[in-house]
């Protein structure tokens, strides 16, 4: 049973009087526990596809089934709930909330769920331990390095133990040492917790770690290689 099933997905954006086709007939399945990546030139539709899988956007035609839920049929609230419980996001620019401490940033998605303070604390500290940042719990984001910030973002996406983590260019702002560090962290979480990771990237370093590479060009899948 695939975690993500995409059938004949087409995404068009209105541009002026007409529209621009960003995704043009995508058919893809991802299974639980995959460590896969979307690669391709800029504008090929990687982010668009991740956003649809992440229920932040909807298909124009075709279907996208994530964890047995059809993205196009979800209400706003249902989509939010799906993201809150089952999908983690990691961004190129970390996007930590500057006003809150590392602990509070990681805690946020648990605040949206009905989880006791005690349970929240336990989960947050465990997530910080996964990324090796327990000693920075009380720091503010502006006191962290780029690598540390991205590790906090990983902890934030992992704290709810999601089925899927979507990472859009997670290494683009990091140097090579930090890139390898966070990739190792994610690979470890992928193996230990059997979480599905889906990347969008141009980064060769990321590709080294992937066990499946899907290439997009002009909104179409041009190759789909599984590495062994």
């Amino acid at each position: 049973m695939a975690t993500i099933k995409i059938n004949d997905l087409v995404k068009k954006f209105p541009v002026g009087k007409g529209h621009f086709t960003a995704l043009n007939g995508i058919n893809l399945n991802f299974d639980k526990g995959e460590f896969a990546g979307l690669v391709g030139p800029s504008g090929s539709g990687k982010t668009t596809l991740l956003n649809i899988i992440g229920s932040l956007d909807t298909p124009t035609t075709g279907s996208t089934i994530v964890l047995d839920k059809s993205i196009s049929e979800l209400s706003n609230k249902q989509a939010a709930k799906l993201r809150n419980k089952h999908i983690g996001f990691i961004f190129q620019t970390y996007n930590l909330l500057p006003v809150y401490t590392v602990f509070e940033n990681v805690e946020f998605s648990l605040l949206l769920q009905k989880i006791s303070a005690f349970e929240r604390k336990k989960a947050v500290m465990m997530a910080l331990e996964w990324v090796g940042l327990t000693d920075k719990a009380k720091s503010k984001p502006n006191m962290l390095s780029g690598g540390e910030s991205q590790r906090v973002a990983i902890a934030r996406s992992m704290v709810k133990k999601p089925e899927i983590v979507l990472a859009d260019e997670p290494t683009a702002n990091l140097d090579s040492k930090n890139s390898h560090h966070i990739l190792q962290t994610m690979k470890k979480l992928n193996e230990e917790l059997n979480v599905t990771f889906l990347f969008a990237t141009h980064d060769e370093k990321v590709m080294q770690y992937l066990n499946r590479i899907v290439s997009l060009e002009d909104g179409k899948v041009v190759s789909d290689e599984i590495k062994t």
Partner: peptide, 16 residues
């Protein structure tokens, strides 16, 4: 805006 964006991604709905 970016804060609201992240919060959307973390599963807060826009009504909330």
């Amino acid at each position: 805006y970016s804060e609201y964006g992240v919060r959307l991604a973390l599963g807060e709905n826009k009504g909330h």
